[in-house]
Design a protein around this nucleic acid. Structure first.
Length: 849
RNA sequence: GCCGAAGUGGUGGAAUUGGUAGACACGCUAGGUUCAGGGUCUAGUGGCUGUAGGGUCGUGCGAGUUCGAGUCUCGCCUUCGGCACCA
């Protein structure tokens, strides 16, 4: 054994060992209970970053721990390989997206392997592989048959920079989630997945996911946005038509004095009287050009225009003028709102502006509302007035009563409305899964027959970067014979949103080589659902909602049995680092700052905020450099020790040093004791008993911290304490058996965190078989038992002393000794003792005064 | 505006059920080893106060419940995240 710890040599050695032994290949045939552990797979950008290191280090601890604890663990890895950066690289550097992607994958695979993660590499998949996306095309065809995939023309979010459509979830602050460009509205024919058909189940099931963080569930519930209310028909005056509105406030129906329609509402122009036509058309045109940022900002003024037509309030029979309002959204509810100015703030502002009538219909307790003097709408509770037969009812009760009456009279019905909208999946891009649909002039839209799958993405297309998808320009791809009639026809040239691939990859991992179906039923039902899923919280809505939706769709198509894909979810925090900048050279990489000065000009570097590591701010640390300098084990240990997984991790070079020093210390500890033979049994008294107690306490603590709690930082701290305890024990006495056990325990407990160095140390401790064979240590309940206990003594809640007594000493005797403690006795001198509280085995509190 | 999470030494963070606040680590200080540096080992390290035993203050701010509050309740401040004209 070498005296010095040299990570480079030993890490390579053990990575090779695991690969040769197929240590991490998962088999369904195992008699052990299954455990499916999954981390979100990466986009092959070319290099792994510290976020990956953290995510996959967390996952690897759990995977290795579960293996040691006797589970049959599935821990796969693959590549979310379709997406825009590959296409951009093609345009900018004239390299084919496929070549670029596979080179990146090769590089990142090497990097991940150098971290020593326990993946079953035999299951590796890349979503850009036809063997993967062909099954996605098949699922799509079956969804199409069932009406779960459909095409419609609609206004869509368009990113002018990416030249493609974005789903609502992919628009952040009116900017593109990927490139931040301002999103525009564009009318296009698009494919949609009917996720709204699953809105209720997706929402309801959030109540049965106890293993998910509450924040993520709340975000998903908000996103689905269920609201209960009524649809009510308002007849148009002088016509046979009616306008249908959605409202959650049917209790205010008697106060509805006008109607607001979305400018895009189909009846908008139809209801406009000729003399107002020019004004209305101008208004509609204006709203369409207003970008969403302004339209949705707080201070944006409510604007509107009168159509000249009226409708009838079905319960009061009053005429209500019909307006178009810029604040009415066509894609929520019915695109029409019954306006109750007294009890809705927007309607109030609108009514004031256009001098429209107001009627108070809810009277709060102790407040008299007067339409003339009101300065804002009353949206709180109260009792109904001016509401005919419903007067006097509490407005809560009136909601039910009015809804019932509307249903009986057939002018309205109770409905549930969702904020969630169908998922638009067409993208005008090349590097994605082709949509298997053919357009024939005679037969219309024809699905590609299953036997003709996959529709393969052609490789010989031009990348100009100018307007539209390269696929549309490839005659070889577009021109096809209609599968129905055999005449010349055209393929769909759009590709799927890349979130489609990541919506079912977890199922494919169960049987990645299946050649007859997307998944092998027996395999997928054995492994699914994922027992523990780990990834960034930034996917709380998009990816995690789509994946849940797909799981349910695949269930209903008969591919698998699971209702939900992920039983437990851990969302890890971001990796952050202080930014540094120079007044003349802008953001600086860490290596561009030497002794606090800009390397280029010598100006003192300015320390900025601590933010998420990003290339644009240059506050990044390259995992490769970290591995080269300290080894993978140190990189893993730091990312696990510096913060609990769900919190942000703040980068600190010195703390990395500390982790490296700790591993060196463990190395020296084993080096010194490598020949120690566990002879003579365990001494039952004195320092030996104390060390053995510490050893077994540490086993218990580390086990409990990892299992379910994921408190890796405190688990590692406990192991450090054991190491400190061993050092303190040295020289006091010698009990080889206890010492040997303590040293071996350090190695075994560290194994899930730093697998290379521990395997190496384990072998130097004379074990022919690896740590895998040793399993996870078990604590001896007897060894943990205390001989003594420390009792804290308080006087009026303030700590005044502590006493050490025999562990089995009774409460009464503890009390006597507590009162006799010197410092306590001094505090009590001349005082009247009112009460003495004894908390068994913990503390005594003397109440005086 | 609404919803949610967080706020603890110089720093990252502990404190699992209301019971010793600051585990563990970084940093810093002193000393040993070393020609020196690095490494390593030992001791110390929340503020104020006292020669010392000790005292006193202290978990964003203010109240409250309790023998006892970082932890529970109420109000406020700050930061971060999500949603945001959703009828």
């Amino acid at each position: 054994m070498q005296e010095r710890y040299t990570p480079a040599d030993i890490e390579k050695k053990w990575q090779l060992f695991w690969e040769e032994q197929s240590t991490f290949v998962a088999e369904m045939s195992s008699p052990l209970p299954k455990f499916y552990l999954l981390e979100m797979f990466p986009y092959p950008s070319g290099r792994i970053h510290m976020g990956h290191v953290r995510n996959y280090s967390i996952g690897d601890v759990v995977a290795r721990f579960k293996r040691l604890r006797g589970f049959n663990v599935l821990h796969p890895m693959g590549w979310d390989a379709f997406g825009m950066p590959a296409e951009n690289a093609a345009i900018q550097n004239n390299i084919h997206p496929a070549k670029w992607t596979f080179e990146n994958i090769a590089n990142m695979r090497t990097q991940l392997k150098s971290m020593g993660f326990s993946y079953d590499w035999s299951r590796e998949l890349a979503t850009c592989d036809p063997d993967y996306y062909r099954w996605e095309q098949l699922i799509f065809l079956q969804m199409f048959e069932k009406g779960l995939a459909y095409k419609k023309s609609s206004f869509v979010n368009w990113c002018p920079s990416c030249q493609t459509v974005l789903a609502n979830e992919q628009v952040e602050d009116d900017g593109c989630w990927r490139c931040d460009s301002k999103v525009e509205q564009k009318e296009l024919e698009q494919w949609f997945f009917r996720i709204t058909a699953y809105a209720e189940e997706l929402l309801e099931a959030t109540n049965h996911l106890p293993g998910w963080p509450e924040t993520v569930l709340t975000m998903q519930r908000n996103w689905i946005g269920r609201s209960i209310g009524c649809e009510i028909d308002f007849p148009v005056a002088g016509r046979a038509q009616a306008i249908r509105v959605f409202t959650t406030r049917q209790d205010t129906l008697f106060g509805a004095t006008f109607m607001s329609l979305a400018p895009e509402h189909p009846l908008a122009l139809e209801l406009t009287v000729p003399e107002r036509r020019a004004e209305v058309e101008a208004f509609i045109a204006k709203v369409k050009t207003q970008d969403k940022i302004k339209r949705s900002s707080d201070d944006f003024e409510k604007e509107g225009v009168f159509t000249g037509s009226y409708c009838i309030n079905p319960v009061t029979a009053h005429k209500m003028p019909i307006y178009l309002g810029n604040f009415v959204l066509m894609d929520y509810g019915t695109g029409a709102v019954m306006a109750v100015p007294t009890h809705d703030q927007r309607d109030f502002e609108f009514a004031r502006k256009f001098d429209l009538p107001m009627v108070v219909v809810i009277e709060p307790q102790g407040v008299l509302l007067n339409p003339e003097s009101m300065t804002e709408a009353w949206t709180g509770p109260g009792h109904l007035v001016n509401s005919g037969e419903f007067d006097g009812l509490a407005n809560d009760a009136a909601k039910e009563a009015i809804a019932d009456v509307l249903e009986r009279r057939k002018i309205g019905k109770k409905t549930v409305n969702y904020r969630l909208r169908d998922w638009g999946v067409s993208r005008q891009r090349y590097w994605g899964t082709p949509i298997p649909i053919i357009y024939c002039d005679d037969c219309g839209m024809v699905p590609v027959p299953e036997k003709d799958l996959p529709v393969i993405l052609p490789t010989d297309v031009p990348f100009t970067g100018e307007g539209g998808s390269p696929l549309a320009k490839s005659a070889k791809f577009v021109e096809v014979l209609c599968p129905k009639c055999g005449k010349a026809a055209r393929r769909d040239t759009d590709t799927f949103d890349t979130f489609v691939e990541s919506s079912w990859y977890f199922a494919r991992y169960c049987s990645p080589q299946a050649t007859h179906a997307p998944v092998d039923k027996a395999q997928v039902d054995y492994w699914m659902p994922v027992d523990q899923y780990i990834g960034g919280v930034e996917h709380a809505v998009m990816h995690l909602l789509y994946a849940r939706f797909f799981c349910k769709v695949m269930r209903d198509l008969g591919f698998l049995a699971a209702d939900e894909p992920f039983t437990n979810l851990l969302t890890q925090g971001m990796v952050c680092k202080e930014t540094q900048s120079c007044p003349t050279h802008g953001w600086l990489y860490p290596e561009e700052v030497v002794e606090g000065q800009c390397l280029k000009c010598g100006t003192p570097a300015l320390a900025g905020r601590t933010e998420k590591m990003s290339k644009s701010k240059k506050n990044v640390v390259d995992p490769d450099k970290l591995i080269a300098q300290y080894g993978a084990d140190t990189a893993r240990l730091f990312s696990l020790f510096a913060a609990p997984p769900e919190k942000h991790l703040e980068w600190n070079d010195q703390s990395v040093d500390g982790c490296y020093r700790f591993l060196n210390r463990v190395w020296r500890l084993v080096f010194e004791h490598r020949h120690l033979v566990a002879a003579g049994g365990f001494e039952q008294d004195g320092p030996a008993r104390n060390l053995r107690r510490l050893t077994h306490r540490t086993i218990r603590k580390v086990t409990e911290d990892i299992d379910g709690r994921f408190h890796f930082n405190t688990a590692i701290a406990a192991i450090m304490e054991l190491v400190n305890g061993i050092s303190a024990f040295e020289g006091k006495t010698t009990c080889p058996a206890v010492m040997r056990e303590a040293v071996e325990t350090v190695v075994r407990l560290l194994a899930p965190f730093v697998p290379h160095v521990t395997e190496e140390l384990w072998s130097h401790l004379g074990h022919a078989e690896g740590l895998e064979a040793a399993g996870w240590p078990v604590w001896d309940a007897e060894a943990i038992v205390d001989d003594e206990k420390v009792i804290v003594v308080q006087v009026n809640g303030k700590m005044r002393g502590r006493i050490t007594v025999a562990a089995d000493l009774g409460d009464e005797e503890v009390k006597v000794q507590a009162l006799a403690e010197a410092n306590v006795a001094r505090a009590l001198a001349g005082q009247t003792i009112r009460n003495v509280i004894v908390v068994p085995n913990r503390l005594v509190n003397v109440v005086i005064g």
